[in-house]
Design a protein around this nucleic acid. Structure first.
Lengths: 160, 160
DNA sequence: CACAACTAAGTTGTGCACAATTAAATGGCC
DNA sequence: GGCCATTTAATTGTGCACAACTTAGTTGTG
């Protein structure tokens, strides 16, 4: 006698609880560690992500920032305004296309990079993972994200 | 001549951008797929997590729910109130300890479980991962969360 | 008993995520 | 040139996460 269908389904629910909780909790735990480390810099975790992109790629329009970080203007507009209020960036309407707003690093924003250089190692120590494990986890997560995004897109436009 | 320290540090920043973005994005992508699947049930992703715990373990005080999900009353109080407004749970002050509020499933909340049984498989399909990969990812994430929580605790209480 | 220490929920304030909408600018097309 | 679809930001509204604080109930100790 095998398990009844109802039991099997219940097992799925339990498994689902485990996996979605694992990812949810990992994300929040990561966020929490960054919160502590970034407090010295006066940045939140998403603000740090924006600064990382700007440090790496230079000034960008909000649109490009959003593509890099998969965030829309509803999230980025107020976030960038807070960075501007903190004196780390300036927002400037593009002259050639006045719809576009380019985000520039200020002197202070550029200087902050020096202090941010120590962040990654402090985080690495907190994870207890070595470089190979981090890289492996990253590739799995990227694959997962890609599959999930594709699935979401497929559901949004079933006929495509 | 090896790379200068500055270059090495810059590499760390780039790596950090990659890994923290990977986890952040994976979490949001997961959230997005659940959002679509759970819309039929009228639940958000965190509300679904609460319901999963209640379906599995029966009625619980808010305190216990918070321990299971690592969420505090600031998050849970309004969330549970919304579940109550939706008719899925009732909140009742405990008679023996009037500080405690026990969350009970209503008839409707219990019935919703039947409809939720299909959720996990729809999610699994979206991930494109098989059971073994899911289990493996989960164990890595749990280990990561454990290490991060431990590190956060150590930083909060350096002398312990 | 009285009072301090602790505990469980709830409240307030800040910031992020995202859907839906709006506003302004641009570009194509007749 | 006039009109319309598209694009870029910003705004509005809902919900979650979390820190800090408040309120009310409980427990331990003198």
């Amino acid at each position: 006698m095998t398990a009844s269908p109802a039991d099997t389904e219940a097992d799925w629910l339990r498994l689902d609880r485990q996996i979605c909780f694992a990812l949810h909790a990992a994300s929040r735990a990561f966020n929490g560690v960054y919160r502590v480390v970034l407090k010295d810099l006066g940045l939140t975790y998403p603000q740090y992500l924006v600064m990382l992109v700007l440090w790496e790629q230079g000034d960008l329009p909000v649109k490009k920032l959003g593509e890099q970080l998969r965030l829309d203007s509803g999230t980025l507009s107020p976030l960038v305004k807070r960075l501007e209020a903190a004196g780390l960036v300036r927002r400037e309407r593009s002259a050639e296309d006045e719809r576009s707003v380019r985000v520039h690093l200020t002197e202070e924003g550029t200087r902050l990079r020096e202090r941010a250089l120590e962040v990654p190692r402090r985080i690495m120590r907190s994870t207890g993972f070595d470089l190979a494990e981090i890289a492996d986890l990253r590739s799995r997560l990227d694959r997962l994200t890609g599959a999930l995004d594709a699935a979401a897109t497929a559901q949004a436009r079933p006929g495509d």
